[in-house]
């Protein structure tokens, strides 16, 4: 009994659950904070924050404003969706792939403005997402099964 209850599959399952919850919460709040300005949340604040981000990146790089705006104005919604789907365990494998690619895209935005600290910070998210993908086969407590 003891040997069976401490099988690697169970430990990997809990390990993945912890990682999934962490990544889900992180994505959810990263998305939410983009709607915040001076303590209150609104769509107006979102477009102000994201407009500033897009203009700042375009102003300091070769990326055209239309492309940074397209990315910036969608990123908050994507993070909210990814956060919720990771927390609930909906299409987890697909969500992790999309989540990882989103962080690669974010990293690219900071690479082009030579923001090394930010790139390293986002790199940690990418590594954790990669780890989650390696463990996704042990996914448990999920609404949908992949």
């Amino acid at each position: 009994m003891n040997e069976q209850s401490s099988s690697p599959r169970t430990e990997y399952g809990y390990a993945f659950l912890i990682l999934r919850l962490w990544l889900g919460l992180r994505a959810l709040f990263a998305g939410l904070e983009k709607f915040e300005s001076k303590g209150s949340y609104s769509f107006a604040a979102y477009y102000e924050n994201m407009g500033r981000m897009a203009t700042g990146i375009s102003g300091a790089s070769f990326l055209p404003l239309w492309s940074t705006k397209l990315f910036a104005f969608s990123i908050g919604y994507l993070l909210l969706v990814f956060g919720l789907t990771l927390l609930l365990g909906i299409k987890t494998r697909l969500t992790l792939v999309a989540h990882g690619l989103l962080y690669v895209a974010l990293s690219f935005g900071l690479m082009v403005v030579q923001e090394a600290e930010g790139v390293a910070w986002l790199g940690m998210h990418v590594v954790l997402t990669v780890g989650a993908l390696l463990l996704v086969r042990y996914n448990r407590f999920a609404v949908t099964r992949d």
């Binding site: 904070e33 983009k34 300005s37 001076k38 924050n49 500033r52 981000m53 897009a54 203009t55 700042g56 990146i57 102003g59 300091a60 935005g109 403005v113 923001e115």
Partner: peptide
């Protein structure tokens, strides 16, 4: 605050 960073964080 860098031009692309959110103000007030």
């Amino acid at each position: 605050v860098k031009p692309w960073e959110k103000v007030g964080v």
